[in-house]
Write a protein that binds this DNA or RNA. Structure first.
Lengths: 215, 215, 215, 215
DNA sequence: TATGAATGAGATTTCATTCAT
DNA sequence: AATGAATGAAATCTCATTCAT
């Protein structure tokens, strides 16, 4: 088992060292990845509070000790996942095009919503955990609000450029986000029997009606 | 002095056994009421999972023993509250008038949404706990889905009577409910700074736009 | 900090799940052993019902947590001990020689009864707990009956080979076992002041009289 | 509700008073009787420790308050029952005739054992609870030992009058009692399938063999 | 880097007993 | 004489986190 390592050390000079170190680092990274994935899975299945470190560790096929080697506690793991989601959502919002009453813009919105629904399928449970607001009212709780706030703000910015919209862009954006998030959730838990595309279509239609008068 | 408490000892009180079985006198009823109210308050403040029976009991100014006299555990209390909410929501939905493109209907909807927002302010934490899906995926969890399903169905029924609406009434209703519920939530937790009436107005506007073309 | 402990939350650890599942290392095994020994000691001193997990844990010099790492509850520990006793009794019964009206056989029986009395001194409290029938009328309760049944059956088999015995071997064997067990018990709790050897002698004499006519 | 009482008080002089008092006393006695009977039943079913005051009270169709009106606690009820058993056993032992190697004496013994088995059927669980020695090592615990001691002593007295018995009468008597008690128990719980009379016959035969050489 | 074992604070739950009517 | 309600001490049990190897 140690044979390879020994062999590597035989190589004279530094060349071998980095490689070996990189090897170890790779292993650690793999472990972290396994834990994060397990975290998503377990949080999804049971929610933040019912998730036990033990469940995560078992699914990741590691030990408690290892868990605390990489994360300072359960919330820490959650926070890292939340940051990931935040990044994804931020990236996503950048892809959102202009909101104009054109067929092209509408098609673009539909595609964008499809991506959102996919994202929600993967990370939804985390997003819900934020909004469930049951997490200790600390940093992590605010983190969720912040991400959601930025997400909404970015949309509001687009909404603001729509002429002749009587309502406050902030409020309209929030109504949109609310609908999109919750509808995705309902679709996810099977409250309504629809495919990913149908969800996106329905949301597109609803959003379009809210934003634009018919020509 | 006597205290054998093997867990397996008795069938672990199917939730609800205690209080539903016995015929309560006035005093008992008062106590149950106090506990239920304390439950709402505590669940609101800290969420379902962070709520400890101890908190509820303290707020209700009774003892642990008394709590378990009437409820078999925390979830049991929650279930009873959830049933109440279900009743209130069902009652509310009956008050929803026809959805027609008239000023009167619109005013009625706005009033109705105000009532909803008030209700949400009182019971919101419970509703969220349902949807957070963090409660054991048992009876109680389904209870939430059921109530929400009935609520949505009732709205769908009204929506179906609107002529010339291109989208599926079920889906439209769900989009509406999603928006209403989540927007109320965002408003409640202060994600957006708006009064009860402003929330109702915004929701009315958004809903109206989704449902009706301008004359 | 995290401490949601709704009882219903997990299937309440079928007794035995913990320790039987995991592969124990030396240290773990030592701990289990300490707990089992402490269990015998505490059950002996105070009886099954008065024994608190706390007592066992203290005597074993471990913590509550550790106890529940290996046993799902008090009854689980008891069950494991009962299985041990069952094994010992089964092994003992194999050592019982033929029952013949010879001096050698009688001497052998006396020795055998001495061993039994020793065993009873060690495990008696457990055996009594079975028969006290105070333990939940479940698996564990039946366990006792089973072991006792096998024990009696093995003796009955020997008895059946005695010629000219007018009574039913089964019944005779049970009468013997009844006498042996209960007399040991009386001796143990000091109902009668006799040494281990005196108990064995008395039982031998009584048994011999029941089984054989004088030559 | 107070009407009758008032009416009774109208009757001049004492005549009415006693009758009324006697009435009340009778009611109280009936309640005590109900509680004692319920005690036997519940102790029999579940043993001393698992018996909850609540079970007894429910079976007796009274309330907690009433229970503590007549008994100072659970042990008190048990003690009163134990005293009853003691009385019965003492009475029974007086009926035991001489132990002589005659057919008449043997027949008498068999009848006596039948009575014992009947008694055991009714009070056995209490007797076992004594001997389980799990009751707080107080007065009540000793009570059981005492009764059993007297019972054994009375038998030892008869045994002592048997000529040519090589073993100590005390020890022999105890062996007899041990066998009788435990065998009855085994029969009671169905360890062996025998009728009351068969139990008595088997015990008679075994006892006789222990006490007398064949003529 | 990894791990199984151990810990103990904190939550839940039971039930004998007392209280007020 | 009777009762339903309330109590709280004491027990059980869980699980996030630390430790020793």
């Amino acid at each position: 088992m140690e044979a390879d390592t020994t062999a590597a050390r035989r190589v004279p000079g530094h060349p071998g060292t980095p490689a070996e170190k990189r090897q170890l680092r790779a292993r650690g990274e793999r472990t972290v990845r396994k834990l994060l994935d397990a975290g998503i899975e377990v949080f999804s299945r049971t929610g933040y509070h019912n998730a036990r470190v033990d469940d995560i560790v078992q699914l990741a096929q590691t030990s408690h000790g290892t868990f605390y080697l990489y994360f300072s506690n359960k919330e820490d793991l959650f926070r890292r996942l939340a940051l990931d989601v935040g990044d994804e959502l931020t990236a996503l919002v950048d892809d959102l095009g202009e909101l104009e009453p054109t067929a092209a813009a509408r098609a673009h919105l539909r595609d964008w919503l499809r991506t959102f629904v996919d994202l929600y399928r993967h990370y939804g449970p985390l997003i819900r955990a934020w909004t469930a607001a049951e997490i200790e009212t600390t940093e992590t709780g605010r983190l969720g609000s912040d991400v959601l706030g930025r997400f909404t703000a970015a949309i509001a910015e687009r909404v603001a450029r729509i002429p002749e919209l009587p309502t406050d862009p902030q409020v309209t954006a929030l109504a949109l986000v609310a609908m999109i998030e919750r509808f995705s959730f309902f679709a996810l838990i099977g409250q309504v029997e629809v495919s990913r595309d149908e969800v996106a279509d329905a949301l597109t239609e609803a959003a379009w009606r809210m934003l634009f008068r018919p020509s």
